[in-house]
């Protein structure tokens, strides 16, 4: 029953998208926006709606770095991999945070509550080096995502000690690795 209900929900969300109209990215973004990720059982629903093979939809999902196939952690450190951050010690920040948290980029704690994600530069380089911390609690179903939702809280001009303190706070709040 629950499975049927979620399928009906996917179908409802993407009902306006059509085959051969360039709607795949729209549909996938819509699903991810509402669920925080693209659940496995949403893939055939998208494929059916857009008249595509399931494999092709799945192939597209895995091609793009920002589509998720599992639920996001409650708290996620988005580490900026850009060159301006790197020039200012961004890679040192990554190594230090990974040591504190006990997992690497794209990893999570054992219970999945905290994670780290590699981000591409968005040009906020005046505050390099930076990470932004996103929180995925209580996804606002139906609402347009704002810059704040999408980007979370930016921790800019980070020193390595400050990054370590930040990782320690997140670790103590979100349980152990």
């Amino acid at each position: 029953m629950a499975e049927q209900a979620s399928r009906a929900r996917y179908r409802e969300l993407i009902k306006d998208f059509k085959p051969d109209s360039g709607h795949l990215l729209h549909a996938l973004h819509t699903i991810q926006h509402h669920f925080g990720y693209i659940p496995n059982d949403a893939v055939p629903v998208v494929a059916q709606q857009l008249g595509m093979q399931t494999a092709k939809v799945f192939g597209a999902i895995t091609f793009y770095a920002e589509f998720r196939t599992s639920p996001p952690p409650r708290t996620e450190i988005n580490w900026c991999s850009g060159p301006a951050c790197r020039l200012k010690g961004g890679d040192n920040i990554r190594r230090a945070m990974e040591s504190v948290l006990g997992f690497g980029v794209e990893g999570t704690t054992a219970d999945g509550t905290a994670g780290m994600h590699l981000q591409q530069c968005d040009g906020s380089c005046e505050y390099a080096p930076l990470v932004w911390v996103r929180s995925f609690t209580g996804h606002a179903d139906g609402a347009d995502a704002t810059l704040q939702d999408e980007r979370g809280v930016v921790h800019g001009l980070l020193t390595v000690p400050a990054a370590i303190e930040l990782a320690r706070v997140i670790k103590s709040r979100e349980g152990s690795a």
Partner: peptide
């Protein structure tokens, strides 16, 4: 000024 750069600077 609300832009991605100002968000990093704490405009909110």
């Amino acid at each position: 000024s609300v832009a991605t750069c100002s968000h990093a600077a704490g405009v909110y």
